[in-house]
């Protein structure tokens, strides 16, 4: 990272037509950031998701102020799911450390645990939905409910999307059909994404219990 310090203002004030600048420019390797394409791709996706979630949070805060707002009481299951998600993130971090050390046999098993925990999380979330539906708390009952279903669904879709890439990495590890560099990167990126989803969940869940 340090080699490619990006000073936007300096960059934008270059005069590409001047001879002194040409000498410098001719050495440029054509990359703006010292990041791999895949990493940058995941970061871009995380930025777009962050914008989406932020806009929902803004809408939530705006809608909350109207008098018809009745907060939901969170069932204990939601706390369990949160703990599962924290644990998943933790295990994924372990996996990443293992794969960095080229210990793929161990990492393989850890990946399986991640998958199991993530599926458990999603099942847990569906159970919470069922719990609310049984209580007669539908999305149309109250805006607070609507936002609850919306947030959990959207977060769930993000988790499922992550599982798709987790699946690809895991299959590759098990079929031993991989290049070391690529699988390391895949595991690292998945791990980052899982941490991101954990943070998103903290914010959404925090928002819902705080109001």
């Amino acid at each position: 990272m340090s080699k490619k310090e990006l000073n936007i203002f300096k960059l934008l004030s270059e005069k590409p037509w001047e001879d002194s600048q040409k000498v410098i420019d001719d050495q440029h390797d054509g990359k703006t950031l010292a990041l791999s394409k895949a990493k940058l791709g995941v970061r871009t996706i995380m930025v777009v998701s962050t914008v989406i979630f932020s806009l929902f949070v803004v809408s939530y805060s705006d809608r909350m102020l109207v008098h018809d707002w009745r907060s939901l009481s969170e069932p204990w299951l939601l706390w369990v799911n949160t703990i599962i998600l924290i644990f998943t993130s933790f295990v994924f971090h372990k996996t990443k450390v293992l794969s960095d050390k080229n210990e793929f046999e161990k990492a393989k098993n850890y990946l399986l645990i991640v998958g199991f925990l993530t599926f458990a999380f999603i099942t847990g979330q569906l159970l919470v939905w069922q719990y609310y539906v049984n209580l007669g708390q539908y999305a149309s009952t109250n805006p607070a409910n609507a936002f609850f279903y919306l947030f959990t669904a959207l977060h769930g879709v993000h988790v499922l999307g992550g599982l798709f890439f987790w699946g690809r990495a895991t299959t590759k590890l098990f079929t031993k059909n991989f290049s070391v560099l690529k699988i390391k990167q895949a595991i690292e990126l998945c791990a980052i994404y899982w941490h991101f989803l954990l943070i998103v969940w903290f914010i959404l869940f925090g928002l819902m219990i705080a109001t």
Partner: peptide
């Protein structure tokens, strides 16, 4: 555009 330019292609070029 950010990462796949050829050698010598700075942003300001």
């Amino acid at each position: 555009i950010l990462q796949s330019r050829t050698r010598g292609m700075t942003l300001m070029r």
